[in-house]
Design a protein around this nucleic acid. Structure first.
Length: 826
DNA sequence: GCAAGGTC
């Protein structure tokens, strides 16, 4: 039996399809798909199925000095045991083995991992390696006709990276965490990729903080030819003879203003026309895809997750690629043909097919592993995918269209006019040939109309405006800019860059979007810059890449490279040791700064955000236990301290982050003071007759609201209200319960909640319909149960088996952390 | 409970 091993299940299936001519059978072994035909079996791995780690005796952070990790052994252990087990079963029976992992360095290493698993149970079986750049009939057939051998040097290059990353990352992470006493979930991490990325964000923040704004002025005036008015801007020549629009002295600006205002005509002194070719964009690699999706409002993580789903469903090609050159076997016309006749995507394809010649654009990067991201020709019907998935699918289709479309042509018209000694300019642009913009409507094609005028012509001058402005600090990096910059710096890979950003969020290093560094992040970068500069610099990756190339080409040994790296880290630790306390103090102080809200109204010490036992949060005084002052926080979400301060109490406002249910809580002390009873709705159904209890809209100290009885705590009758939005009490009354109907104003559209009792009864009815044991879990209401059921999670068992991050992606308003809490509770 | 790299 011949055993074929690929990097992922998807590739295994497609290769089986090609090699068997569509006649393969599939079965499952240990939860792993196995494709079988004519004496061959094909099995897909799931990327790395083994990982590197230190032996068990190093696993207790407190027992082992971080420096000891530098010379510790590094072992390989199975991380995907079911796949390893399946591989072993078939390897025993195999008469030949073919490794068909991805055609790149990491693929070679994954191939070597499979090789070792096979060798372990079968000493003699021949093991070959095939390489192909895309899974197409021709490439795959040819690769299997000409098998090669594994490149052990290339795999060793990857192993060197694994070892160096583990040692540096683990030793430094443990050192910082121990120095600050941050163990358990709140450890302080450092790594070759995450730390330079964090430094990028921190450096920008430092620039923003050091920024000193400067005043300047700009002047505009309207010019008119016949009835057409257009805007013109004052400019002058600066000392380097460049055109400049910003006037740095107020007196000068006013003088120009006075002169312009006292004239009613300007003379055209220069007219400059030129055409500009606007070349169509290059094929999508991962980074450019993330950027384009980012412009549509998708986070990097979300864009990749949708792309992954579209890939798995067969609609687009593999989404993790650096390649920006289509492979030879992609026939653009054939692919366009697949879209002909489609109700929304067809017209563009038909237009493109009319061209005499179709020549796709090419980017700078041509790699061997996967093609650029493009549609496969398989088109989902509108009901098969969500709106977001469709939007991303259309983006990928239209990007492909754009790469085979004509260039656009712009006509630029610059008109310079003169008023006494001052000059005004107007830049017009017109899209004369829309070209690719017709099929790719994601770029701006805004035109700016400036009429055709001639030199010497007189134009009417009016509406002179003097605008006082200030220079702005540099902007924070957005997620896609960060990913692009990481790519430019050569850190991370197409598959990991977006995860690295997510990691920085998880570690409490960045908050919000665009990401803003926390005080902790600033302190970590400070410490690294002072003591382990290398780990926050892109240089470490550059050196590693060079070393890996040397190993791959046989010029260096894995042990030469890792030994040298170990020595460098030893030196770093020699310096670190003395400063352990100083570093720890700084980190601890920064951690506290990140939680600081402002002065305690009772004792004047600082109020801090604190964790309660169950993963929720409250506000407590730093003076505890002497001062026991506390304030509540809402139970949903994770608090983010905003820059805004409440004028009355001097406390920072708080926002609660909970995915799409994120809301601003405001000043927690104001909230507490506002707590109390709102409008009376009617008699309490429980104690109204006997004790005259009445129902009122109540705001609790935590900011959450409910309808409750005025006789609380003697009567505990209550009805839930939504967390967000203003509650309006209308004049309509419910016939059955004699209570007013309520309307909730949140977002753009107010919605009718109706009678609060009817609303609650419906809610309960749904809850009992669902009949799910999930409701036993804390904070899991009927609505969420319903949403989880839609995502295929119908019971506690389903929930405990689920991957929290995947579920959070699928279910609106449910964060991975909440799922983990429920899993823990279950 | 450390990294980064695959994949889901």
């Amino acid at each position: 039996m011949e055993l074929i091993i690929t990097e992922k299940d998807n590739a295994a299936r497609r290769i089986a399809d090609i090699l068997s001519g569509g006649t393969y059978d599939s079965s499952r072994e240990n939860g792993v798909n196995v494709y079988e035909w004519g004496g061959k079996r094909c099995v897909g791995l799931s990327g790395h199925v083994v990982g590197v780690d230190f032996p068990d005796e190093y696993s207790d952070w407190r027992d082992v000095e971080p420096v000891e990790l530098i010379d510790a052994d590094v072992e390989k252990t199975a991380t995907k045991e079911n796949i390893v087990a399946t591989l072993r079963i078939f390897a025993r029976k195999a008469t030949s083995v073919t490794i068909a992992t991805d055609y790149d360095r990491e693929g070679e290493l994954i191939g070597k991992e499979a090789y070792e698993i096979v060798r372990d149970v079968n000493e003699d079986v021949p093991i070959r390696r095939v390489r192909f750049s895309s899974i197409t009939e021709n490439e795959v057939q040819e690769a299997f006709e000409n098998p090669d051998d594994l490149d052990f040097d290339l795999a060793a290059a990857g192993e060197a990276r694994q070892i160096i990353d583990l040692i540096w990352g683990a030793a430094l992470t443990r050192f910082l965490s121990l120095s600050a006493g941050q163990l358990g979930n709140d450890f302080i991490s450092v790594g070759r990729v995450q730390s330079p990325t964090l430094k990028l964000i921190v450096d920008r923040e430092r620039e923003i903080q050091a920024f000193d704004p400067e005043d300047y002025w700009e002047l505009f005036a309207d010019l008119a030819k016949d009835d057409t008015t257009f805007e013109s801007q004052y400019f002058y020549r600066d000392e380097d003879d460049n055109e400049a629009e910003r006037v740095w002295e107020e007196a000068v600006a006013e003088e120009v203003y006075d002169t312009l205002s006292s004239n009613d005509a300007a003379t055209v002194v220069d007219v400059n026309r030129r055409t500009r070719t606007d070349a169509p964009p290059t094929p999508f690699n991962t980074t450019q895809f993330i950027r384009a999706a980012g412009a549509l409002g998708y986070s990097a993580q979300r864009a990749m997750s949708i792309a992954e789903d579209l890939y798995t469903a067969g609609y687009i090609t593999y989404p993790r690629t650096d390649n920006t050159v289509y492979p030879d076997d992609l026939d653009p016309e054939e692919l366009l043909d697949d879209f002909v006749g489609h109700p929304t995507l067809g017209e563009s394809a038909e237009d493109l097919l009319e061209a005499d010649e179709i020549q796709p654009t090419e980017g700078d990067e041509e790699t061997t592993d996967h093609p650029p991201i493009h549609p496969t020709g398989e088109i989902p019907s509108r009901g098969d995918v969500s709106d977001d998935e469709w939007e991303i699918f259309e983006l990928v289709v239209r990007r492909f269209y754009a790469t085979v479309a004509e260039a656009a042509v712009w006509e630029h018209l610059k008109v310079v006019s003169e008023v006494e000694d001052y000059r005004l300019k107007a830049n017009g642009k017109r899209l004369v040939e829309p070209g690719y913009h017709d099929v790719y409507p994601y770029f701006s094609t805004t035109e700016n109309y400036v009429p055709d005028v001639e030199e010497g012509e007189e134009l009417a001058l009016s509406d002179v405006e003097l605008e006082a402005k200030q220079t702005q600090p540099p902007r924070r990096y957005g997620q896609s800019r960060l990913i692009e910059t990481m790519e430019d710096m050569g850190i991370g890979t197409k598959s990991t860059r977006h995860n690295t950003l997510e990691k920085l969020y998880d570690r409490g290093y960045i908050e919000s979007d665009p990401p803003r560094p926390t005080k902790l992040a600033m302190a970590v970068v400070d410490a690294a810059e002072n003591y382990a500069d290398r780990v926050v610099s892109e240089e470490m990756t550059a050196q590693l890449e060079a070393d890996m190339d040397a190993i791959a080409s046989g010029e260096a040994d894995l042990s030469d490279v890792t030994d040298e790296s170990r020595e460098m880290l030893e030196e770093i630790f020699a310096n670190l040791a003395e400063s352990r306390e100083e570093i720890g103090d700084h980190l601890r102080k920064s951690l506290k700064d990140d939680k600081r809200l402002g002065p305690c109204p009772e004792c004047g010490e600082d109020l801090l955000v604190r964790n309660s036992r169950h993963g929720s949060y409250f506000i407590g005084c730093d003076g505890y236990p002497d001062c026991e002052y506390t304030l509540p926080l809402p139970s949903t979400g994770k608090p983010l301290i905003l820059e805004n301060e409440c004028e009355e109490h001097g406390l920072h406002e708080v926002k609660m982050l909970a995915g799409r249910q994120t809301f601003v809580h405001g000043c927690p002390l104001c909230k507490a003071e506002d707590a109390g009873e709102g409008p009376i709705l009617g008699d309490c159904p429980e104690c109204g007759e006997e004790h005259d209890g009445e129902l009122a809209v109540k705001t609790l100290q935590s900011g959450s609201r409910l309808v409750g009885c005025t006789r609380y705590p003697d009567c505990e009758y209550s009805l839930p209200l939504p967390r967000r939005g203003e509650i309006e009490v209308t004049d309509e009354r419910c016939d059955e319960h004699d209570l007013p109907e309520l309307v909730v104003h949140s977002g753009d559209e107010p919605w009718e909640l109706g009678c609060p009792i009817c609303n609650y009864q419906e809610f309960q009815a749904r809850e009992s319909d669902s009949g799910s044991d999930l409701e036993a879990l804390d904070g899991l209401g009927a609505k969420t149960v319903e949403k989880l059921a839609d995502a295929g999670i119908e019971s506690i068992d389903d929930l405990t088996d689920a991957d929290p991050d995947a579920v959070a992606e699928d279910v609106d308003g449910v964060s991975a952390d909440r799922i983990r809490n429920w899993q823990a509770e279950a």
